[in-house]
């Protein structure tokens, strides 16, 4: 499957995922190299979020998932995460009734969390540490969600639509934070915003009908308007920012 000689932090083979008996991921196989950003792309409802959740065991899955050389497909979610996976879920999923500080404290997996990095990236959160996360703006909640993942020493980050529903200014901030993170940890990114993908992604994996239809260097896809139209159902070109964010994926949470 892999077209490069780099080692892979994550390999996924013949992954199937189910939610309440309904098949949402079908025979998906791909690799995530141990550096840079791999973008998982596809039209709405194609199973990107479900693929991420299957990797974590948040939904029932079968198949072979190998993280840093270790099979994890039979491990429960918390064990997978403890092996060094940071997860930034779709819709952020911060704990609204907990303060910002509590949200972050809960996420700390080691005795020496990387608080300095978080404070540097998101100074806003330091000021708002006592505020209930439910009262934050969408952008601030995304900061909390990212910070929860970046606090820990991870082998891999799974980041699901981090810019969804955010204002252009916040999108830029989030992108910068992810760029910074990508220097030290490989990222598997689900994203709809082509502009963001262009800035972040090194490689892309495209899903269609629950299966992988394209794997390769990001540029190979992004410089081919016809493919973008066919795989993602959007026009590339000047109107990057208008990439449709109102249509959320039709995947039950």
């Amino acid at each position: 499957m892999s077209t490069t000689s780099r080692t892979n932090i994550l390999t996924v083979r013949n992954l199937y995922g189910r939610i309440e008996g309904q098949q949402v991921v079908e025979d998906v196989s791909f690799d995530v190299p141990d550096t840079g950003v791999t973008a998982l792309l596809g039209r709405n409802g194609v199973g990107k979020t479900s693929t991420i959740k299957s990797i974590l065991g948040l939904i029932d899955r079968t198949g072979a998932i190998t993280l840093a050389g270790r099979r994890v497909d039979r491990l429960p979610t918390h064990k997978v995460v403890q092996l060094g996976v940071g997860y930034v879920p779709e819709d952020r999923e911060v704990f609204g009734k907990l303060s910002v500080a509590e949200n972050l404290k809960l996420a700390e997996r080691s005795a020496h969390p990387n608080r300095a990095l978080v404070e540097e990236l998101f100074p806003d959160l330091v000021q708002r540490h006592a505020q209930l996360a439910g009262t934050l703006s969408g952008g601030q909640q995304q900061m909390v969600s990212l910070a929860r993942a970046l606090l820990n020493q991870n082998r891999l980050l799974l980041v699901d639509e981090p810019t969804k529903g955010l204002s252009p200014k916040i999108v830029t901030e989030v992108t910068q934070a992810l760029l910074a993170a990508a220097k030290t940890v490989p990222i598997l990114l689900v994203e709809q915003n082509l502009q963001v993908i262009r800035q972040l992604a090194d490689r892309v994996v495209v899903l269609s009908g629950g299966r992988v239809v394209f794997t390769g260097e990001a540029a190979e896809l992004l410089d081919d308007p016809e493919r973008i139209q066919r795989y993602l159902g959007v026009h590339s070109g000047a109107d990057h920012s208008s990439t449709d964010h109102s249509n959320t994926e039709q995947v039950p949470a």
Binding site: Y16, R18, G21, Q23, E26, D27, T62
Partner: peptide
Amino acid sequence: GRERMLDSEET
């Protein structure tokens, strides 16, 4: 049984 059914038919 159900698993097998899903694997063989629905994919």
